[in-house]
Design a protein around this nucleic acid. Sequence first.
DNA 1: GTGGAGAAGATTTTT
DNA 2: TCTTCTCCAC
Length: 577
Amino acid sequence: MTFLDALNPAQRRAVEFFEPRPLVVVAGPGTGKTRVLSHKIAYLIKEKGVAPKEILAITFTNFAANEMRDRIESLVQESPLCTTFHAWAYTLIREVLGEEAPFIIDELDALALFKEAIKLSGLKSAGSARQLFKEIGLIRQSYPPKRSEDWGKRSLFLFYQALLSRHRVVDFDELMLLALSLLKDESLLKTIRKRWPHVLVDEFQDVNGVQVALLERLSPKYLTLIGDPDQSIYAFRGSDPRALERFVSTHPDAEVITLETAYRCHGEVLGCAASLLSDKSASKKALKAEKGHGPKVEIRGFPGPREEARWIARTIESLTGALSFEAINFSGNVPTEDGAFSLGDVAILTRTRSSVNAIKEALSRAGIPFLETYGHTLAQDRCLRSFIRLISISRGENPAFHKRRLEEEAHMGPNEIDECLRAISKGELKEVLRKIGGDPEDALYRAFLKQVTTTNITGAMPLELGSDVDLLGVRLDAVHLMTIHGAKGLEFPVVFIPRCESGMIPIEGGDEEEERRLFYVAITRAVTRLYITYSSASGGKSPFLERFPEGLYLEEFIKSKKKAPRRPKGPRQGSLF
DNA sequence: GTGGAGAAGATTTTT
DNA sequence: TCTTCTCCAC
């Protein structure tokens, strides 16, 4: 009896594959992707005598890296380097360039510099700076490097790069490009290859061109790529659903293992999900629901978003047994299943952040606690941003750049900055925070102050700042509100997908295939219950729902019992008040 | 440099 | 519909 006995045959083959050629694992939703990765690493250490320091596990997010580390440590006591592409690249850069290494700036600072570049170049920009920056970003994330045909854009980008190097900073994209160019040095490459003969990459469908190039350059002796092309939902930041396919076609020696048993979702959910995939997709027929059948997917239509939101709130009350007085008087058709789930089991997934407003209002009214977990990074808070700059200056991390940004962004004078710096050196952090307009008693700032004083955030601040949710360590029994993108990699016993209307899912102007994959990801988060709702007032039922196979879902249109509210204006978004 | 008015945008997100 | 930027007057 070993730890490998817990694996199914395909998982086990992937774990035990030990040959000096690439292994590609195609892992659909709920097929045990993280399980395979963590067991594979444990297997290398335990059974193959590989030293943990010879293993490099690369993920996309800090969250995933931490999860991976925990999973491995529960199997073997030691753990290898589990890191993100960006953090790994920066470590490499520091190792090679030492004190000469540039500092990392985040997206907001990058955009500010880009705007400066627009001014310097004197070019009349077509479109907004933001849009242009995004466009150039996509070019920089592709590899081999695409060249913009537009002469103006090219020279604009040269101005931007000049600004970056003048300030000795790199943005996240340049960070990857710099690492790639450093690895052109053969002796360095040799050292790195020797150091990590085993490299494992999670969520390979999310890599961008430069990251693929980096891996190709590295070409470790033992490479494992794991991913699912059907869950590729980051084309807007340079990833390509065909990355796995392309890798396999350029590496004919690669072993491909497809995990076909899905443990998370039952047959009804998987059947509806499969209807969204293109016929070429491997998962379309392959995925088998280990659980067999379960409840049907429920589709509900409403006259407007408010009725929809109210119904969702009532249904949550009913599912969790959190019945309020109001609920008892509610006349809508709500499933009765008192107390089968806890509030934390429930997730509401939306395409955009703003489309959740009506639901927030309905939940508040019903007294249902909820937690919004959007990828809201700390550094988006104006005041915290200035505070972080002051801390950076006091640590000698890119002081000139941050001083300049403080003057331009927060309109602080040199004297004011010096005053704050003196206060920091005396340890009066709260005073400083107050001075720049923050409230040190605010929970977010308190948590941040604690982090600053207890941990030593080094050079790569933008890499290490998490979200406010991470920082506050919120663990509440509350309904989760998040975007579909944010829910990737997670699962919930009960999932609601509201506003499933054309124009929203798929979103207007979006790429149909990518929107289908996105909806596929949303649906496959559901472990037990899946409710998909729409309102006819805004856009009407999503065309994606028409694809669902007969017999796997129940559909009902719920008319308001009250007089239909007068709504002469067309589509409307619910607002909070 | 501050403040108000008016215009221009506007998915999705991690590092 | 709400937010953010820009420009102009003070």
